[in-house]
Amino acid sequence: MAFKGKEVGVAVIGCGHWGKNLVRNFSELGALVAVVDPREDIAAKFAKDYGVEALSLDEVLASDAISAVVIAVPAELHAKIALDAIAAGKDVYVEKPVALTMEDASAIADAASAADRVLMVGHLLQYHPAFEALLAAVRHGDLGTIQYAYSNRVSTGIFRTEENVLWSLAPHDFSLMLALFDEAPDHVEGTGAGWVTPGIEDEYRVNMTFPSGGRAHIFASWLHPFKEQRLVVVGTKAMAVFEDTHPDKEQKLRLYRHGIDRSTGRPVPVKADAEILPYDMAAEPLAQECQHFLDCCASRANPRTDAKEALAVLQAMIMAGAT
């Protein structure tokens, strides 16, 4: 549904590199009421461009016209702003990661539950129509039992100095892996190294195992010769590839029904041609994610990427960073 009558009034807090995209999407959905940014000139520009108010955070929290806030600020500020917003009676969408510590994340989750507020975390790729189709195929049993999966998220830049590549890029991949295996990992280890900025890892590799026996690994780097966003899932019946950087949208999601011939006493691969898995190529992931948040606010439903999912993702990331 489109919220042209502002049944859910949204303020976006933070109009920076990613926040500007949230501003645009919530405006297009008819829900944007206000923007907040510590840079007054930036806030004024976005307010003028989108025909809304530029407010302070305190004004947003006190406003009866604003029922939900979207937090797109540095991660170290997530906990305080989210807790203040929940205390003010607002539903909350917070960009990934939900917080930097389990203590802060649990406090946000507990506060939202106690206040009966919607809490959603921006694990964007859960709302990508190609991943939705892949996850549906996995849960339908088309791939059989998932044996292992891996994800590459690499590019040349953007180099960050406030966080390493694990925290900047990999939350998406942790979220996808936990969804695919439908459980939290029982063992996580990670290692990385940095060269561009002292003390900041530019590449990170993570290995995970799951209670059901599945395995996964994640490779994230912003010091890489080319851009690649590829997720591979290998099951007992079939294999799938979700390649978001593929230039042909029709080729982004492919299924391979490779088999193994054991008739000679030795395993021999039986290769099959790639099958194109259909998905809604017209749907934009961020628009779908923003719409889902509005739907949950209106219906009081639990978001797909809710507090439980966010805590599981954060716990796995902390385990990876600790090793």
Rank of each mutant, 00 (worst) to 15 (best):
I158R: 13
L134A: 03
R160C: 02
H123N: 14
V165W: 06
A133G: 08
R160D: 06
V118L: 15
L135C: 07
L143Y: 03
G141P: 01
M120V: 09
R139M: 11
H128L: 02
A136V: 04
R139C: 09
G144A: 06
Y150S: 12
P129Y: 04
A136S: 14
E163N: 09
T145L: 10
R153I: 13
E132L: 05
Q126W: 12
G157R: 11
V154T: 09
E162M: 06
I146L: 15
Y127G: 04
V165I: 15
F131S: 01
L135Y: 01
V121M: 02
Y127M: 07
F159N: 08
I158F: 13
T161S: 14
F131R: 00
S151D: 04
A137F: 02
G141A: 10
N164D: 15
R117F: 05
A136L: 11
T145F: 08
G144C: 04
G157L: 11
E132C: 07
R160M: 13
Y148C: 12
T161Y: 14
A137G: 03
F159L: 11
A133I: 04
H123A: 08
R139V: 03
L135G: 02
H128T: 05
A136P: 07
A137T: 02
M120E: 06
V138H: 01
H140R: 15
N152C: 06
Y148G: 10
E132I: 09
L124K: 05
R160I: 08
V118C: 11
R139I: 03
Q126M: 13
Y150Q: 13
H123Y: 14
L125Y: 05
A130I: 05
A149S: 14
G144Q: 04
N152A: 08
R160W: 10
T161C: 08
E132S: 04
L119T: 08
I158P: 15
L124E: 08
R153D: 10
S155V: 06
N164E: 12
E162W: 09
V154A: 09
A136F: 07
R153H: 15
S151Q: 04
Q126D: 07
A136R: 11
L166S: 04
R153Y: 14
V165N: 00
T156L: 14
Y148F: 14
N152D: 13
L166N: 02
G122H: 03
L143N: 00
S155P: 10
T156C: 12
T161W: 05
A137Y: 01
Q147K: 10
P129V: 05
D142S: 06
E163H: 08
A133Y: 01
M120C: 11
S151A: 11
R160G: 08
S151W: 04
F159Q: 10
E162V: 10
H140Y: 06
S155W: 09
R117E: 02
L134H: 01
L143D: 00
L166P: 06
A130P: 07
T145A: 14
Q126L: 15
L124Q: 10
A149R: 03
A133N: 04
I146W: 02
A130Y: 02
L134P: 00
A137M: 12
G141W: 01
V165D: 00
G122M: 08
L124A: 07
A149L: 15
H123V: 13
S155C: 10
S155T: 10
T161R: 12
I158V: 12
L119R: 01
E162H: 12
T161A: 15
I158T: 12
F131I: 05
G157Y: 06
F159V: 14
E162T: 11
A133C: 09
R139W: 00
L125E: 05
A136K: 13
P129Q: 02
F131L: 12
